[in-house]
Amino acid sequence: MTIQVDEDRQEPWTVLRISGELDLVTSPLIRRRLHDAVAGGRHDVVLDLSAVRFCDSSGVGVLVAARRLMRSCGGRLRLILPARGAEDGAHVNRVLAALGVRRLFEVYADVPAALDDTAAPLSA
């Protein structure tokens, strides 16, 4: 499998740091980790995608489904996406923007900003 997920809890947030490729093969793992978090009562999740090198349509589908899941349970979902210049991570930002779904997400430059409820998300 070409993906790694590290979990870090910084109450009330659960941070999932994802690195590798988010594709048809690896998307079910991310979906399962998100469902496990919600089942465990953790409804505020940050997905750090800054080390994701590749994302296909199934990866985008997981992100959109994650947004729906978090909204359905009254939770919050925030994404970490480098805007440009970064070798990793910027790919996901470009894919989401190209598909017109980037605006659906609260996006932050880094984990500390995402955890700070006074920080504004980056504009689309």
Score class of each variant (00 low, 15 high):
Val45Met: 07
Ala65Ser: 14
Pro121Asn: 00
Ala119Met: 02
Gly89Tyr: 04
Glu106Arg: 10
Thr2Pro: 14
Thr118Arg: 04
Asp6Pro: 02
Pro121Leu: 00
Ala109Ile: 00
Arg33Gly: 03
Val62Glu: 15
Val5Tyr: 04
Gly20Arg: 06
Ala37Met: 12
Gly75Ile: 03
Gly85Cys: 07
Ala114Ile: 04
Leu47Tyr: 05
Gly74Pro: 03
Gly89Lys: 09
Gly41Val: 05
Ala37Gln: 15
Val60Thr: 10
Phe54Tyr: 15
Ala65Thr: 05
Arg102Trp: 01
Cys73His: 15
Gly85Met: 09
Glu7Met: 14
Pro121Thr: 00
Ala86Lys: 13
Pro112Ala: 01
Arg94Val: 01
Ala109Glu: 10
Pro121Ala: 01
Ala86Met: 10
Gln10Ala: 07
Ser58Met: 15
Val45Lys: 06
Leu79Met: 05
Asp23Lys: 05
Val101Asp: 13
Phe105Ser: 07
Val101Pro: 06
Leu29Gln: 13
Leu99His: 03
Asp110Cys: 07
Asp8Gln: 13
Ala86Val: 13
Asp6Cys: 03
Asp44Cys: 07
Ala124Gly: 12
Leu79Arg: 10
Arg84Glu: 15
Ala86Pro: 04
Ala113Val: 02
Cys73Trp: 09
Arg68Asn: 12
Leu47Lys: 10
Ala120Val: 00
Gln10Met: 03
Leu16Thr: 08
Ala114His: 03
Tyr108Trp: 02
Ala98Ser: 12
Pro112Arg: 07
Cys55Arg: 08
Val107Lys: 00
Pro112Trp: 00
Leu29Met: 10
Gly100Met: 11
Leu34Asp: 11
Asp88Val: 11
Gly100Lys: 11
